[in-house]
């Protein structure tokens, strides 16, 4: 039981259910997951728990993922949480905007499952 509680918590913020399912399937049983469909839900999650990493979509209903990211980085408590931005908008400009907003990594949709897994692993290990 102790080992189970030690598994890192990952926040998946994406309005598409299939995508959240995919991220969970890709990262596998080594993590615990908490899901959010939009920025409001993600903020609620952050108040109650402190995830080890966040997988964040950009185009969300209401506030965009990048706005959420900027606000996140402005708070000292959440400054250090590694964030992987996953987006179908993946031009060089889009990637730069995400990194400037405070993303630690960028993965374009569609993605190779191995890529996302290794990015998340390395961020948590670091």
């Amino acid at each position: 039981m102790a080992a189970r509680t030690l598994r890192p918590l990952i926040l998946i913020c994406d309005d598409e259910l299939p995508l959240r399912e995919l991220v969970k399937a890709v990262l596998g049983d080594g993590y615990r997951y908490v899901e959010a469909e939009d920025v409001n839900q993600a903020q609620k999650v952050l108040k109650e728990s402190k995830p080890e990493a966040i997988v964040l979509d950009v185009m969300l209903p209401g506030k965009s993922g990048l706005e959420f990211l900027s606000e996140l980085r402005a708070k000292r408590r959440n400054k250090a949480i590694p964030v992987v931005v996953v987006s179908a908008w993946q031009s060089a400009d889009d990637q730069r905007t995400a990194l400037n907003a405070g993303a630690d990594a960028f993965v374009g949709k569609p993605f190779d499952p191995k890529d996302l897994a290794s990015v998340v692993e390395s961020l948590i290990a670091a």
Partner: peptide, 21 residues
């Protein structure tokens, strides 16, 4: 359109890859 297509495509490709690997 490419964005709208990529979102479901990400699921299709991602799950297919998982199923294969």
């Amino acid at each position: 359109v490419s964005h709208e297509v990529r979102t479901p495509l990400a699921s299709v490709l991602g799950f297919t890859r998982l199923l294969l690997e």
